[in-house]
């Protein structure tokens, strides 16, 4: 198994071929903020919090969705990156209705955590107070769209791990929303096995157990990784670093 060597913030690291820059940063002891990424799910590069700079290019790259290549010089922080991350969190808060004090996820929310990490205490952008519904049609779970940040973890875990593909994104742009079935109430969608995986991986209080009250959600976000690992046992390689699909090729920017 070949090994890739690169530097992260000046620190030399070695990772197995196919590893992401996020894993490389982890190997260097750097914890990048992430929201859409979850170990065990296909990366999408949607939240843009994990963006890093690469020596020799001006474009920022999502660490979660970029494969490490030999000799890369990655820098994970700079005044600009800090400012962009902060602004991103502000945009998340302004986009939805996040009133943490009343949320099931209060205290166990990745959005809250990220806000603390990037030092965001208020939003410079006006809150949009969108009108969004709550779907409580499922016997055990519920979806409160007010807290959804469109990370699509639920879509991916249900499709890639559970194989049910109950969820998907509908509409586009700022009208985007998570839907189940043909935009039906969740409880009516026959494909749902009520496995609860989507609830476990949701970074916020959008998906929750119906019995959960304020601050009572205790998600299990390592679930996909563990399941994937178990499923691929015998095939996965050292330290569980292997990606679900080792990407071919790589190399320089050919457009």
């Amino acid at each position: 198994m070949s090994v890739i060597t690169l530097t992260v913030d000046g620190c030399d690291v070695a990772v197995p071929a196919g590893a992401s820059l996020l894993q490389a940063a982890g190997a260097a002891g750097v914890k990048l903020p992430t929201l859409c990424h979850l170990d065990g799910l296909t990366p999408v590069g949607a939240c843009r919090l994990c963006l890093v700079a690469l020596e020799g290019t001006t474009k920022l790259l999502p660490a979660c969705a970029t494969e490490a290549a030999e000799g890369m010089a990655v820098s994970t922080t700079s005044p600009e990156l800090r400012e962009y991350r902060r602004m991103a969190v502000e945009l998340f808060f302004a986009e939805g209705n996040h009133i943490c004090a009343y949320c099931v996820s209060n205290g166990a929310c990745e959005l809250q955590d990220v806000a603390v990490t990037v030092g965001m205490d208020h939003s410079r952008f006006p809150y949009r107070y969108p009108q969004r519904p709550v779907d409580a049609s499922h016997p055990w779970f519920a979806l409160d769209h007010n807290h959804c940040i469109l990370c699509t973890r639920c879509v991916r875990v249900c499709d890639e791990i559970e194989g049910a593909h109950v969820w998907d994104l509908a509409e586009r742009g700022s009208d985007c929303r998570i839907i189940s079935g043909l935009d039906q109430p969740w409880g009516e969608v026959e494909a749902c096995t009520s496995c609860g995986k989507c609830v476990e991986v949701c970074p916020t209080g959008a998906l929750f157990h119906r019995e959960d009250g304020t601050s009572e959600k205790h998600p299990h976000r390592e679930l996909p990784f563990q399941l994937r690992l178990a499923r691929e046992q015998g095939q996965w390689r050292n330290q569980g670093q292997a990606l679900p699909q080792a990407l071919e090729g790589g190399g320089e920017d050919p457009s």
């Binding site: 999408v44 590069g45 949607a46 939240c47 843009r48 991103a88 945009l91 998340f92 302004a94 986009e95 952008f125 006006p126 949009r128 940040i149 469109l150 994104l169 509409e171 586009r172 742009g173 700022s174 009208d175 985007c176």
Partner: peptide, 20 residues
């Protein structure tokens, strides 16, 4: 704003704020 696909946050939410 109309044509953003909505996948990534800066474009989905940022363009809305810029329009405002």
């Amino acid at each position: 704003v109309n044509e953003s696909c909505g996948k990534c946050l800066p474009c989905r939410a940022g363009t809305v704020q810029l329009e405002q």
